[in-house]
């Protein structure tokens, strides 16, 4: 089976994050860029399915040129066979819907895939929106928030981790699946994997090459708009008491005074 894993580059969580003047994430500090942690789970899920059923894993990434590093250092060394990177200035500032459109267009050029696997969220914006929007643009069934995936003939079945509990959901492939944290233990790239990754095919496309209509993407064409922003006002120092055996009563008083009971 052939699986496409959509993977994104995000700033490392420990690194300081800023917005640039246009309200998009400042990505100028390349050293701090990593593969979106959820996409490691997606990549691992795809590798496991291919190991069991045969086939190929292709990583698809929409992102800046500098993201090539992340593909070469992480996604490909984990074991994916090849990557497609869509890079174009016109894509800068695309919101979740525009990104999903771009991914859907790029997918049209991938022949004969059975599954598209995404992470359930990216850790920078915590959107959890691209997978469903992608299902909509591709017209493929969307099986989101998967805690497990199994393939049975031409059917894919997941346990969906919903708000109310678990749902078992199945659909005929091709289908779109998004995975949650903890679906598996992503492998660390081996030394051999890292070496092999240097020579794996990486197909770089610009917007036109990926069939993307640039009037649908980018900051200006995204329908979600960002205005002004400000730092959250610092919190006023709170009351801190040392427990002398009576702190519970002081805390109870405080809760009562602040009408929190």
């Amino acid at each position: 089976m052939n699986i496409v894993v959509c993977a994104k580059q995000v700033p490392d969580t420990a690194a300081e994050k800023r917005l640039s003047s246009d309200g998009t994430l400042d990505r100028s500090n390349d050293a701090d860029q990593i593969l979106n942690p959820l996409d490691e789970y997606g990549t691992e899920a795809a590798l496991k399915l291919v190991e069991a059923n045969g086939g190929e894993v292709t990583i698809l990434m929409v992102g800046p040129k500098s993201a090539t590093e992340t593909l070469r250092k992480k996604a490909l060394p984990m074991g994916a066979d090849k990557a497609i990177q869509v890079t174009d200035e016109a894509l800068h500032g695309s919101d979740a819907v525009a990104t999903a459109y771009a991914l859907a267009q790029a997918l049209k050029q991938v022949e004969g895939f059975d599954l598209v696997i995404l992470g359930s969220e990216s850790t920078d914006a915590r959107g959890s929106l691209v997978p469903s929007a992608l299902s909509e643009f591709t017209g493929l069934p969307g099986l989101t928030f998967a805690k497990s995936i199994e393939v049975d003939g031409n059917v894919v079945r997941i346990q969906r981790e919903g708000d109310k509990g678990f749902e078992t959901v199945e659909a005929e492939m091709p289908a779109i699946v998004s995975v949650v944290k903890g679906i598996n233990e992503p492998r660390y790239p081996s030394f051999k994997g890292i070496m092999a990754a240097k020579n794996k095919p990486l197909d770089e496309k610009d917007a036109a090459g990926a069939g993307i209509d640039t009037s649908m993407v980018g900051l200006a064409n995204s329908k979600s708009k960002v205005g002004e922003w400000k730092e959250r006002p610092p919190k006023e120092a709170g009351t801190i008491v040392e427990d002398d055996g009576e702190a519970f009563a002081k805390l109870a008083d405080w809760l009562e005074e602040n009408k929190l009971l």
Partner: peptide, 23 residues
Amino acid sequence: STTDGKDIAARLAARLGSGLTND
């Protein structure tokens, strides 16, 4: 902002060409 809410909103925005302001 729930799993179903996000899934529904994302699909609806993609279909109707609407903006989607999150969380």
